[in-house]
Design a protein around this nucleic acid. Structure first.
Length: 159
DNA sequence: GCCAACGTTGGC
DNA sequence: GCCAACGTTGGC
């Protein structure tokens, strides 16, 4: 199976105090800049493609949880924030000739009417094995199984 | 290449 | 604010 077939499924973390689901709804589309972890970068640079589906997760929040849905809506491209000395995401090792960090654009799809809390996901046997729920998981971008993605979407319909 | 020290993430 | 878990850095 080639990369151009079925969409992939992801979970992307954001701190709502920095950038929330409401911000994404307002913006409609945003470059997912500032990822400075190689594994997370590799997911964006090597695996993501337009149309991929994304659970937007609020980390460092009270409570933490999935706030809504988005889609990957660009091909991967270099993160220009790494070239800006005034940016918090500046990294002198990255240059326009040899970019080190990459990103994709993320487009708003749906804000859930209620947050699917981390505690609720932990308690759901249908989500056993979900990467997000593994101990010590700190990656800001995680692949999700289609079944887990669908289960989270189903949970939003329940009270 | 090892590994201790350090910094960051992120739940609680 | 605490701290466990993990990634990165840098001395050797």
């Amino acid at each position: 199976m080639t990369d151009s077939e079925a969409p992939n499924f992801w979970l992307m973390k954001t701190e709502p105090a920095v950038y929330s689901m409401d911000d994404l709804e307002r913006d409609g589309r945003t470059p997912w800049e500032g990822v400075r972890n190689y594994q997370a970068r590799n997911f964006m640079r090597d695996k993501m493609q337009p149309g991929d589906r994304v659970l937007i997760y609020h980390s460092n929040a009270a409570p933490p949880g999935v706030a809504g849905l988005a889609r990957v809506c660009s091909a991967p491209y270099p993160d220009a924030f790494a070239w800006d000395p005034d940016s918090a995401y500046f990294d002198a090792r990255s240059t326009p000739d040899k970019p080190l960090w990459f990103l994709v654009d993320i487009c708003f799809e749906e804000k859930f009417s209620r947050l699917i809390a981390l505690s609720e996901m932990r308690a759901d046997p249908a989500l056993d094995g979900m990467a997000l729920l593994k101990k010590g998981q700190r990656l800001s971008i995680l692949p999700a199984l289609p079944a887990h993605f669908a289960r989270v979407v189903m949970l939003k319909e329940t009270a």
